[in-house]
């Protein structure tokens, strides 16, 4: 059993197209912890000690958020700046996060084909996420391939939301039960609901 923690960050929770539903799905999974960052820190007054303890207490850290300007909402950046302290997350004596895993679950307004050299976003999604990937690496964490929902604004109408929600639940349960093939998940470009690298149930 791995201890899974889902951080959710959306500054406009009430106007969310898919993220509120995704977070609700996460909260429905038994045996994992969740935290709505904008609810916990509406004035960006992050409790560094509490957050560091939370990280120590979990093995898998999930950031679930919409992709804003090819990055995270501001509060996650603030959280990273404050919580991943020298001597805690990196640098001399900074080994608290070694061996843990980090996963980004995100929604993007653009369609999947936009995230390619030929698409209008011009780069693959993973290219935009490299800062987070390197952040995880510097902290001695394993960076898993992200689990994105493209074309998030039409996902519900297109009937893509429910399979994605189911896939999210599966990912979280598999992480919890050590059934996600971490090596495969590390080397994949992205994770998608129909092709999750699960190990067979024993």
């Amino acid at each position: 059993m791995a201890r899974v923690l889902v951080y959710y960050a959306h500054p406009g929770d009430r106007f969310s197209h898919v993220n509120a539903a995704l977070f609700q799905a996460a909260r429905d999974v038994d045996g994992i912890a969740t935290l709505d960052l904008y609810r916990a820190y509406p004035r960006f007054n992050i409790d560094i000690d509490a957050e560091q303890q939370r990280l120590r207490d979990h093995d898998v850290i999930v950031f679930q958020h919409p992709l804003f300007w090819y990055s995270t909402p501001a509060l996650i950046k603030e959280w990273i700046d404050l919580v991943l302290e020298h001597g805690f997350a990196y640098g001399t004596g900074g080994e608290a996060l070694h061996g843990k895993s980090l996963l980004q679950v995100l929604s993007a307004a653009g369609p999947e084909d936009a995230y390619s050299p030929e698409g209008y976003q011009h780069f693959e999604l993973r290219r935009f996420l490299t800062p987070m990937e390197q952040t995880a690496r510097l902290c001695g964490m394993r960076y898993l391939a992200p689990y994105p929902l493209y074309g998030a604004l039409q996902a519900r109408d297109d009937g893509r939301l429910n399979p994605h929600l189911a896939g999210y639940r599966t990912v979280l349960e598999a992480l919890r039960d050590d059934r996600l093939d971490l090596d495969a998940a590390t080397h994949a470009e992205i994770l998608s609901a129909d092709a999750l690298p699960l190990t067979p149930r024993l």
Partner: peptide, 14 residues
């Protein structure tokens, strides 16, 4: 400050 683009925006961009 946080509102995502509308579907129409996405189509226009494409």
């Amino acid at each position: 400050g946080w509102a995502p683009p509308s579907s129409a925006d996405v189509e226009t961009e494409k």
